[in-house]
Amino acid sequence: MLELVAGVLFATGVVWFVLRPIFRPALTGGAIGDAGDVDDGEDPEDDLSPRAVALRALKEIEFDRATGKLSDTDYDELKGKYTAAAVAALRTEMGNAGSGMRDAAASQTHPVSRIPQPACPMHGPRPEPAAVFCSECGRRLGAAPGYCARCGTVLEREAKYCHSCGARVAA
């Protein structure tokens, strides 16, 4: 009997726990995954943006030549190709950033990144209050409206996600 009571109490608790987000949405915040989630973005291998992939390829080409796997001809050719790819990726990001700035100035409806403080994706929050670029690495800081908080790419209008790295953007 006691067991049945315990079971019923437990069941009630479980049902309350499961249905609470529906009846009291305010309690649980906006989107799923806000509370207590870890960010595993620290592992550099996990960054799969075109820029990071091209940079890693450059490293690898260098290493493969050093260990004698890549001939000098292939090395030169691949190095040229991937340097070009990396520069292109950088240029896209910077170019987007430039045009994005104009966009942001022209329109107030542009999406705003959800991180309040100016923060560099690699070096964290910056001490300078109105900084736009990181003083350590020169990356665009995430806080600027219209730019992705994670990778600094300029965001499209009304974007919910960064088209480059997939990070979510605040509404």
Binding site: G33, D37, V38, G41, G166, R168
Partner: peptide, 9 residues
């Protein structure tokens, strides 16, 4: 619990 924020979608 452990999945990074950016996969939340």
């Amino acid at each position: 619990l452990l999945t990074a924020r950016r996969h939340r979608e």
